[in-house]
Design a binder for these strands. Structure first.
Length: 572
RNA sequence: GCCUACCUAGCUUAAUUGGUAGAGCAUCCGCCUUGUAAGCGGAAGGUUAUAGGUUCGAAUCCUAUGGUUGGCUCCA
């Protein structure tokens, strides 16, 4: 990253704070770093809206034009405490600093606690290349226990052109928003009557979802997975044993009681937040031998989690979703090869959806954990080994593993550069312990299996959301809900159009446009609906059993029906 | 959950700042009968999210509730 622009952004953050101090002398200051594309600063004791943003921006322009210089000074902590005596957040930051000296910056009339670096003089800033963009709330030092401050975000670049390009990119990205595409293509809805975060799939969306489900299951079956089906609810005790009720109560829907008097008893039910304990029950239904494992159970399990209202977002963060879930029960010796073939399968599947860019993370042991170091070593090395054998780039999230085991997450970016976790592969030493799972080894002794949780698409809902954004609605042919639209030019060709559609219908999801509208309009509608193939048929085509092919907005000429069919089959 | 902004017809939106809720698309009905991205005309569609309040008068101001947005925290 360009260090110069980072300095400019960081300095703008100070200048913004300066402007805020001028306009709102009572303001208290939090922190103000540079970030990707810009900067922010947190304030307390100010109440502002979007109009005030312009005022602040104007004041910033004035300050910059005064050509103020940024001067660093190192002072004793006690001295700093005096300077910031009326700034409680700064005092707290000073308290957190371990050294007895701190660095401060003067810029004009503004003094801030800051280790820098900064530009030398505000004239290095291009007046036309920055903009305050939005106001948001943010907890001081990022902790929910601290007060919430008002954060002002800005973007900044070296040139006006870069700023304009950036703002244009954001506009572009909004057009790729899966919520807008879902509305336009008639894929899904969220109804206020049903509830936030609960998706209702319309016919086209349901075809899309089902197509993906059928594909993913066929892959799993081909790779040694067996299907299982489990209920949506269970007695509370199941999740008591698994420990979920203890650790994750906050994000679960409340318990169901058959009668008021049962409230304090075990006989209450709950809707499942995950499938694992059910699969464990099936594993435990009989004594397992080392000859039986690895056992791989898969289920498109629909689970419900009470996500906080502020986190819900279209299809990508919801309260009810379908996981392409599976659990692998294996021995320590089998873990290595299981993980490798899993990763192999993952890559095959992600490529099938024409994803090429994603970020892989390996999360290693956290401080609080279960399981011996020996078994953590085996698991972490197996995950690492699988990634390296596949020659995949990955980052290590040190200490970010779940308490029960290490994991690999694969995240896909959406159009606004937000990352969404789709694939997750997690090794688990905990549940086998809690449910006392065993198999009999080749010397007749009981041994603990290792459990691997894995969802390769993650949640079908989220996956489809990301898929729509990634392709801007232009889905790969094989998942498009309507793959082909036949448009007869006039009424005389409607019989021929039906004949064409019938011929194609065994290999393609095909519809006919029989509306009484102009050809241009019907083509436009089909394009807007992102239908991959548009076949126009008129008198000329009818004469020689052909169709006029339009694919992704391009005219591909007239071909015989059988030729077209052959070509499409190849593409599929 | 917290902070910010917001909620007008199925969708996208207008309403001169408190004075008759108006359009485009979609829908329905006609006319046109069509050669690669919107043919023409008409009709219907609204308790302005919901419930209160202020006012002679509320889409507009206030309060509460629900929902949405962008962040923060969270994401087994």
């Amino acid at each position: 990253m360009d260090k110069e622009i980072e300095k400019i952004r960081h300095s703008l953050s100070h200048i913004m704070a300066h402007a805020v101090k001028d306009l709102y002398p009572q303001a208290k200051f939090g922190m103000g770093p540079f970030i990707e594309n810009g900067f922010y600063y947190d304030f307390d004791k100010i109440k502002i809206g979007n109009e005030e943003l312009e005022k602040i921006e104007k004041r910033m322009q004035e300050i910059i034009q005064e050509n103020i210089s940024f001067d660093q000074k190192t002072i004793k902590k006690d001295e700093a405490k005096k300077i910031f005596s009326d700034q409680p957040y700064k005092l707290e930051i000073i308290k957190d600093i371990e050294e007895d000296q701190v660095s401060i910056y003067h810029s004009g009339k503004f003094i801030d606690l800051c280790s820098g670096p900064h530009i030398k003089n505000s004239k290095e800033i291009n007046l036309k290349a920055f903009k305050l963009t939005r106001i948001a709330g943010a907890y001081f030092k990022g902790s929910e226990d601290n007060p919430m401050l008002t954060r002002i975000y800005g973007v900044a670049f070296k040139t006006k052109e870069e700023l304009e390009q950036h703002l244009k990119n954001i506009e572009e990205a909004k057009k790729r928003d899966h919520r807008a595409i879902g509305e336009k293509l008639g894929l899904f809805m969220i109804s206020e009557n049903v509830g936030p975060g609960l998706i209702l799939w319309h016919p086209k969306g349901a075809i899309l979802k089902r197509t993906i489900e059928n594909y993913i299951l066929s892959e799993y079956f081909d790779n040694g997975y067996e299907p299982v089906c489990t209920p949506h609810i269970s007695k509370t005790q199941l999740f008591d044993i698994s420990g979920h009720n203890n650790f994750y109560k906050e994000s679960m829907f409340p318990l169901m009681h058959m009668e008021e008097k049962d409230k304090d008893e075990k006989e209450s039910y709950q809707i499942k937040p995950m499938n694992c304990p059910f699969h464990v029950q099936i594993y435990k239904s009989k004594t397992r031998s080392y000859r039986d494992i690895p056992i791989r159970y898969t289920e498109l399990g629909t689970v419900y989690r009470y996500e906080k209202s502020g986190t819900l977002h279209g299809l990508t963060r919801v309260r009810g979703f379908t996981q392409d879930d599976a659990h692998v029960f294996c021995s320590k010796d089998q873990l290595n090869s299981e993980l490798y073939s899993l990763l192999n399968l993952t890559m095959k599947i992600l490529k099938k959806f024409e994803f090429e860019k994603f970020n892989i993370y390996l999360s290693t042991r956290p401080e609080k954990r279960v399981g011996s170091d020996e078994v953590w070593n085996i698991a972490e090395n197996s995950l690492k080994g699988a990634l390296e054998k596949m020659e995949l780039d990955y980052k290590i999230d040190s200490g970010e593993g779940v308490f029960y085991g290490p994991k690999i997450d694969i995240k896909i970016e959406d159009s606004l550069k937000r990352e969404w976790q789709c694939t997750t592969i997690q090794v688990d030493f905990n549940l086998p312990e809690r449910f006392d799972m065993t198999y009999i080894n080749n010397t007749g002794e009981k041994e603990r299996p290792i459990m691997v949780h894995r969802a390769l698409l993650g949640s079908l809902e989220r996956f489809i959301g990301v898929l729509l954004e990634y392709h801007a609605g232009n889905l790969p042919l094989w998942v498009s809900p309507i793959q082909c639209l036949v448009i007869p030019i006039g009424e005389e060709q409607s019989e021929y159009a039906k004949k064409v559609a019938k011929q194609l219908s065994s290999s393609l999801r095909v519809k006919i446009s029989l509306e009484n509208e102009t050809l241009n309009k019907r083509i436009r509608e089909a394009e807007v609906m992102k239908i991959p193939y548009i076949l126009v048929v008129g008198g000329r085509e009818e004469k020689n059993n052909s169709v006029s092919v339009r694919c992704n907005g391009k005219d591909e000429g007239v071909v015989e029906i059988s030729k077209f069919l052959e070509k499409v089959k190849n593409n599929l």
